[in-house]
């Protein structure tokens, strides 16, 4: 296959370097069941209580194994699966980090419809099975850097967004790609209540410049840790843009639209001085309320894990993506 995904070795090398620096904490991977005693119990006034008093049987969101080209995971300290799937910002299912795993269990993703429309020669509609069968799936181990200054290392499974776009054939007028999350207040309690949903106007929308969207690192993910995505991680299909803050990596996508103007993006609408359209990971440009110069890498180890590491420009992917932004003032276009 002549995929121009280029040199997987180059970004995996960068991965190893960073991970090695990070490994000064316990390496023992104790996969423990999560206890939700503590902050959650006192803090979240809402959804848990509803769970406890609900007469409905607790449902469990099912994931199934995927077939894909595996990546080398041996030299990297991954964030344990239990943490990747229990620490989520997915405000459609509540604003607390442990809300989505509790509130998304009954999320129904099959049938699903993802449409690729707008300024394209060939509009496409993908149904649930297409998401897993139409494109060659591969594993990618990416760092995920949240704008809140924590990070994870996650083995995603998916295909480059470029693969879809190639089939849709963007017109020359197309300059940007606009993404939209499912809007279904019946299934997503955060869309039904401003209190649960954090006061965001839904549906959640995101966007990329076309050259960012077609970059080989930009992944449409349909799985993690060898299986289809759990609901709380953005099932059945989400975006992963590893050099940008996590909020750019929109979840549970139903629409991809090619447009000629910079599309609105949710966090930018909410607080334009705090969250820009580009949202490239940049240790030089602080969030107005906190420093972005370093981050806490979530792996194993409890309170005493010494996990604060320097944040790298473009989250360590500068070699692959910095050229996209040359001659741009990144303090202005943050």
């Amino acid at each position: 296959m002549t995929k121009n995904i280029g040199q997987p070795a180059s970004w995996q090398l960068a991965e190893n370097q960073v991970t090695d620096e990070a490994v000064y904490h316990s390496r023992r991977t104790l996969l423990k069941k999560l206890g939700f005693i503590g902050a959650g119990t006192l803090l979240s006034t809402n959804t848990q209580a509803i769970d406890w008093f609900s007469s409905k049987k607790p449902q469990v969101f099912n994931t199934s194994p995927l077939t894909f080209k595996a990546a080398d995971t041996s030299k990297q300290t991954l964030t344990p699966e239990s943490k990747v799937t229990s620490h989520n910002n997915f405000y459609e299912f509540g604003t607390g980090k442990s809300d989505p795993v509790k509130n998304a269990q009954s999320f129904n993703v099959d049938p699903w419809k993802l449409s690729i429309t707008g300024l394209v020669e060939q509009p496409i509609t993908l149904d649930y099975d297409d998401l897993f069968k139409r494109f060659t799936l591969e594993e990618r181990i990416y760092r995920l850097r949240c704008v809140e200054a924590w990070s994870m290392v996650i083995p995603w499974i998916g295909f480059p967004l470029a693969d879809i776009l190639k089939q849709a054939k963007p017109l020359s007028k197309a300059k940007y790609v606009a993404f939209e999350t499912l809007y279904d207040p019946k299934q997503m309690p955060g869309q039904n209540s401003r209190r649960i949903g954090g006061g965001i106007d839904y549906p959640y929308v995101e966007g990329l410049r076309l050259d960012e969207a077609t970059h080989p690192l930009t992944l449409m993910s349909v799985g993690l840790y060898g299986k289809t995505l759990p609901a709380q991680n953005g099932a059945p299909i989400r975006l992963v843009v590893p050099w940008k803050y996590g909020f750019k990596s929109i979840k549970s996508i139903v629409s991809i639209k090619l447009v000629d103007k910079m599309p609105p993006t949710t966090w930018n609408i909410l607080a334009p001085h705090e969250y820009g359209f580009y949202a490239n990971v940049n240790p030089e440009v602080d969030h107005p309320r906190w420093s972005q110069a370093s981050e806490r890498r979530i792996t194993t180890g409890g309170l005493f894990a010494r996990n604060r590491i320097d944040t790298l420009p473009f989250n360590g992917y500068a070699e692959q993506v910095a050229h996209l932004y040359k001659n741009m003032d990144l303090t202005k276009y943050f």
């Binding site: 104790l30 999560l34 206890g35 964030t79 620490h87 442990s98 924590w150 180890g301 309170l303 005493f304």
Partner: peptide
């Protein structure tokens, strides 16, 4: 709970 890593993914 935080020390034994039983306090969610990010005990801090």
């Amino acid at each position: 709970q935080a020390i034994v890593d039983q306090l969610g993914a990010d005990p801090v």
